[in-house]
């Protein structure tokens, strides 16, 4: 994954657990002591190793770390120079979610080797929809849960998320989402 993602993992660990914790995570993951370059493509293993090291150093489960990372990612990309792009993606939750694919495809302009996920929306009603998450990568459903929670607070809504794994011709994760604005 691109350096942008690894930088966000670093940012999460530093901001929530301190610089010393990051140093331990970095060493444990065997990552050299250098800043990540956002636009450089790193092996996916780097990101997975960082998450794994964070779990053992901070004594947290992968689900919790990934979910935290999801929440952080929404904040982080909003701040790391992508605020305008995020705003352009929509000012309500459903519109935004439906624009995620287009957004990631456009992001491919500056990250040519990006392998972004695809999000499909079905069964949309006034305060609910089903979100289908297609990806090249394994084990990231808890990350999406965190992302959704992050979006819930971005759009100031209460959210309920029900997760199911869909197998078949196009296996993917699906999330039934109910939401309502916080009055």
């Amino acid at each position: 994954m691109y350096g942008l993602v690894n930088k966000a993992v670093e940012g999460l660990v530093r901001s929530k657990f301190g610089d010393d914790a990051w140093e331990k995570v970095r060493v444990k993951a065997g990552v050299p002591d250098e800043p990540f370059i956002s636009m450089e493509n790193y092996d996916d293993a780097v990101t997975y190793d960082l998450v794994g090291a964070a779990c053992s150093v901070l004594n947290l489960s992968p689900e919790i770390v990934l979910e935290e990372f999801g929440k952080y990612w929404v904040l982080y990309t909003g701040e790391a120079g992508y605020g305008a792009l995020m705003q352009g993606a929509g000012d309500t939750l459903p519109v935004f979610v439906k624009n995620l694919d287009a957004m990631h495809t456009r992001v491919k302009l500056s990250y040519p080797n990006l392998q972004p996920p695809s999000f499909r929306v079905t069964n949309e009603s006034a305060n609910a929809f089903t979100l289908h998450y297609h990806t090249h990568r394994a084990g990231l459903a808890p990350f999406v849960v965190g992302l959704l929670k992050g979006l819930a607070s971005r759009f100031n809504v209460n959210m309920e998320i029900a997760y199911t794994r869909v197998e078949g011709e196009a296996p993917h994760d699906s999330f039934v989402i109910r939401w309502e604005p916080i009055s």
Partner: peptide, 21 residues
């Protein structure tokens, strides 16, 4: 390549607002 989930004509037609790669 994108949209990731396109495997049949119905889906393709349904995604006519998406960017295709």
């Amino acid at each position: 390549e994108r949209p990731l989930s396109c495997v049949d004509a119905v889906t393709i037609c349904a995604l006519r607002e998406e960017i295709f790669l």
